[in-house]
Design a protein around this nucleic acid. Structure first.
Length: 156
DNA sequence: GCCAACGTTGGC
DNA sequence: GCCAACGTTGGC
């Protein structure tokens, strides 16, 4: 089983890489994803040990800020059943959950965030879904070469 | 704060 | 099954 590589987005005002670092065991559950394509990745494809780029969206600057890894594979996102939670999903069935999440653990923070602009300017990264028009996926696969290149950029 | 792009919902 | 309306994402 070969390791896979991913990118997950978060608005730092909601949950930043600093928050991840401060979490218990530097680990958190990645809840609140309400997109079916992203759900399928969380439920079916993200495996323990997979490496994940942590991206800050809707901020200044938008950037990949570090790396985390999957430490618990897809399981039911409990917030779908909680009427008090803003991610409550009334039609969700506890016997057959609609939404899933994984746990991710902090690996490292980049010395230098790799900004969206940096990515757009790097010819090796032009195939990334992140920079495709109208992209709104909050969980997406990335190729190993792309992952390695971004880590290299962030480590300088 | 604006707005384009997109996914989902619901009426028909 | 179509598609208009709506809500959300996310760059700028």
């Amino acid at each position: 089983m070969t390791k896979k590589y991913w990118l997950i987005k978060s608005e730092p005002s909601a949950f930043s890489i600093e928050d991840l670092k401060k979490s218990k065991n530097q680990t958190t559950f990645w809840d609140g994803v309400r997109n079916y394509q992203a759900r399928n990745f969380l439920r079916d494809e993200m495996k323990n040990g997979d490496q994940v780029l942590f991206y800050h969206s809707n901020t200044e600057p938008n950037a990949v800020v570090g790396v985390c890894e999957v430490v618990k594979e897809g399981y039911a996102d409990h917030t779908q059943f909680d009427p008090e939670n803003k991610h409550f999903f009334p039609s969700a069935d506890p016997q057959n959950p609609t939404w899933f999440m994984v746990d991710v653990k902090f690996v490292k923070e980049f010395k230098k965030p790799v900004t969206l602009q940096d990515i757009k300017e790097n010819s090796k990264l032009q195939n990334m879904r992140l920079i495709k028009r109208g992209n709104r996926l909050s969980v997406m696969p990335v190729e190993k070469v792309v992952f390695d290149e971004i880590v290299k950029m962030g480590s300088k």
